[in-house]
Design a protein around this nucleic acid. Sequence first.
DNA 1: TATATAAATGAACGTTTGTTTATTTAAAAA
DNA 2: TTTTTAAATAAACAAACGTTCATTTATATA
Lengths: 197, 197
Amino acid sequence: MRPKDEQKERAIRQKAIEMIAEQGLDGLSMQKLAKSAGVSPATLYIYYKDRDDLIVQVCVEETLRMFRATLENFDPQMSFGDGLRIQWLNRARFCMANKWSVAFTEQIRHSPYHSRAMELIGTEMSDVLGQFVRNNVVRGELVRMPFEAYWSIAFSPLYQLIKFHFQGRSFPNHEPFVLTEELLLQTMQLVLKALTP
Amino acid sequence: MRPKDEQKERAIRQKAIEMIAEQGLDGLSMQKLAKSAGVSPATLYIYYKDRDDLIVQVCVEETLRMFRATLENFDPQMSFGDGLRIQWLNRARFCMANKWSVAFTEQIRHSPYHSRAMELIGTEMSDVLGQFVRNNVVRGELVRMPFEAYWSIAFSPLYQLIKFHFQGRSFPNHEPFVLTEELLLQTMQLVLKALTP
DNA sequence: TATATAAATGAACGTTTGTTTATTTAAAAA
DNA sequence: TTTTTAAATAAACAAACGTTCATTTATATA
């Protein structure tokens, strides 16, 4: 029998990510995707059941890739300062090196596809993070608060900075914005100040 | 001559917001919108030049409505603590009372329509906010930092909390999340701690 | 080398898309 | 009341949509 062409599979996935990232969810048509990936429209239906399935599957793959990068060198037993720093650096590194993936994921996150993808992903990421938080609350290194409040302070500033960075000019009356590692760490220090007793 | 039917105009706008909020940008078709608003497809083209124009115009209107609500009772001369509290409460109140509008805006924000809408909106909002920040840096009530870093700490946790609230169950292994005014103010206190010297 | 099998395709399917056109309707102005 | 004017419509357009099908192509195995 004839094996699947991995290069084609990669091309389809990558082009789908770029099309959605650049033109939004309604910018992805199966025919345009096929043409831009250099395959026949019918080929897409060998790899994916239909358009919805394609979007969900690609979303799952990218999210898992991001999770793996985020957990590199991270251990939930770490001190709060160390753990937060590694998380910020890992997430920032991944996002900076995967601009398309970030924009793609952002498109999906605010769409009906997001919850369908999350169901397929499992709880490892939030399990590990939950353990990290609990450990440090017990040790007194972290203020006790609902997990959502913790997450909103700990990470949403980071992702907001990354969005500003990719937007270039974030506010109409401001200079273009560039996220440096120095500013990243400075901002993280302020977040740390908010979260530690 | 015959005047425009304001009720029809409102119905079109509201249904467009709901359709995009619920089904994403590619869930909005002109024919379905017309049917759900109770008008002929051709009528849409009396109010809007084309589909893109409809999306952009509605986005501009909703954003301005949100800006007006945000600036209520706010003065850039306020102390940092007072100003931040009013901003948080205004934004939270608007979002809580305008679920569809929030989900709609979130859809647009991560799409190619966003920048086209922002060009039409003007700089009043970020002017006022910029003045507020500058005043309080001068007074020593606020750490000096790039405006984007300030914004990311000051407001992105708030919007993240609101997203969690509307998502219901934010993390697969957690209880459903409800944003209370108490938790809102507690979180704001931590943000304040991060930003004040 | 021949066979079996799944990958890959081009062409076509019936819908749905955004938009236009010719016509009718309603209300302000005469 | 009549006239004027723009709102509103139903019906239709070509183009693009997601998807399927009959056929061809390529490769692992026998």
